[in-house]
Computed example of a mutant assay.
Amino acid sequence: MGKASVFFLFLALLIFSACDEARVFDQYRSIPGGQWQRDSIVEFRFEAPDTLKNYNLFINLRNNSNYDFSNIYLITELNFPNGKVISDTLQYEMAAPSGEWLGTGFGDVKESKLWYKENVRFTEAGEYLVTVQQAMRRRDSITGIQNLDGITEVGFRIEDIKQQQ
Rank of each mutant, 00 (worst) to 15 (best):
Y55N: 03
N56R: 08
N56V: 12
L57S: 03
F58R: 08
F58P: 04
N60V: 14
R62E: 14
R62H: 09
R62S: 12
N63I: 08
N63E: 11
N63V: 10
N64L: 06
S65P: 00
N66Y: 09
D68N: 15
D68P: 14
F69E: 02
S70M: 07
S70Q: 12
I72C: 01
I72W: 00
Y73C: 08
L74A: 00
E77C: 12
E77M: 11
L78R: 14
L78I: 13
N79E: 12
N79V: 13
N79F: 13
P81C: 06
P81K: 08
N82S: 10
N82M: 01
N82Q: 07
N82L: 05
G83L: 03
K84F: 08
V85T: 15
I86D: 03
I86A: 02
T89Y: 14
L90G: 01
Q91H: 15
Y92K: 05
Y92W: 04
M94F: 05
A95G: 12
A95L: 04
A96K: 15
P97H: 03
G99R: 12
E100S: 04
W101D: 01
W101S: 06
T104D: 11
G105H: 08
G105E: 07
G107N: 07
G107P: 08
V109D: 06
V109E: 12
S112A: 09
L114Y: 07
L114H: 05
W115H: 02
W115R: 13
Y116L: 12
Y116K: 06
Y116P: 10
N119F: 13
N119T: 11
V120M: 12
R121Q: 15
F122M: 02
T123N: 14
T123K: 14
E124F: 00
A125K: 15
E127A: 11
Y128I: 02
Y128A: 06
Y128R: 07
Y128F: 06
T131L: 09
T131C: 11
T131Q: 09
Q133D: 03
A135G: 12
A135W: 08
M136S: 07
R137G: 06
R137W: 04
R139W: 11
R139F: 09
S141D: 10
S141I: 04
I142K: 01
I142Q: 08
I142W: 12
T143E: 10
N147I: 00
N147R: 14
N147Y: 14
L148I: 01
D149Y: 00
D149E: 15
